[in-house]
Simulated assay, not measured.
Amino acid sequence: MSERPYVTLSCAMSIDGYLDSAEPHRLAMSNAADLDRVDAVRADHDAIMVGASTVRRDNPRLLVRDAARRERRLASGRRESPAKVTVTASGELAPEAAFFTAGDGPRIVYCPVDRVESLQARLGDRAVVVGLGEDCVTMTALLDDLAARRGVRSLMVEGGGSVLTQFLGADLVDELHLVIAPFFVGEAGAPRVVRPGAFPWTAHRRAHLAETMQIGDVVLLRYALSERFGTRDGDGTSARAGWETVAVERP
């Protein structure tokens, strides 16, 4: 079996650990400089993943925005933006969502096997629908399929909380980019970065903080969560996209 893709988990949260507010409109956690950094990280990956709830709530395009980065991808034989990946248990995804209509790259939707036929009929040629599992899709099976059948060697996971929790709980993340916004949310119904669960990193097994970076009024913490940290495709290539434009403050 092909080696599983290198996984970078990227998210931004409030000081008190929320991904967003409970309001219908999205609460911006980041700033323009950090969004540009995220764009650079996106450009360095083969695929970008968000959960179906994020597709429904935020309607993300998940494209590389910077023209120079798109040109560099094209010059290297890749598409302008990475492939887009999502996972759904219910199959409730609208074909007019920006996930399916923005850009021209591959779009892959994972769902339980009994949802494949109806979901593929609804999405048509806007996505490839892949059935994995009877009741739910595990992130291990998803990564195995991406590696073996889709040629994906690096995956950037951007949320939401359920997806982040599943990747972290299964110990499938190679590096974590965690941005802290300079405010509190304090709303009981707002989504958290992770849900309750059993995680490999505890008070007795601390995650390794590899680097820190101040970007305007936010701070980025970069954690090494596997022995593959900092490499791509197992070849030792540095995976530091988006870190070259701002001075790093080392702990």
Score class of each variant (00 low, 15 high):
A198H: 07
I108E: 01
F167M: 11
F99L: 08
P182T: 03
S76I: 05
V87L: 12
S162Q: 14
V55W: 00
F167T: 08
V157C: 03
F199P: 01
T237I: 15
L119I: 04
Y110W: 12
D66V: 09
D171V: 00
R57L: 10
T212Y: 05
L35P: 01
V64Y: 02
E23F: 09
A32W: 13
R153F: 06
R73H: 09
F229Y: 14
D235P: 02
A121R: 13
V137Q: 05
V130E: 10
A224P: 03
D44V: 08
L221M: 14
W243F: 14
P95L: 03
A241Y: 08
L119N: 01
S226A: 08
A210E: 14
R37I: 13
S238L: 15
V152A: 01
L155C: 03
D145S: 12
A28R: 15
L143T: 05
G131M: 11
N31L: 06
D217I: 11
G236F: 10
A188P: 00
A97W: 14
S76T: 08
A94Y: 09
M156A: 08
P200D: 04
P182D: 01
P182Q: 06
A12C: 11
T101V: 06
E227I: 07
A12Q: 02
G169V: 06
L143M: 08
T245K: 13
M139G: 07
I15Y: 09
D44A: 15
T245I: 09
K84D: 09
V248S: 11
E71Q: 14
T54V: 09
A127R: 03
A147F: 07
F183G: 00
N59E: 05
S118D: 13
D66P: 04
A94K: 11
A98H: 15
L221V: 04
T165K: 03
G17I: 11
Q214R: 15
L225W: 07
L155E: 00
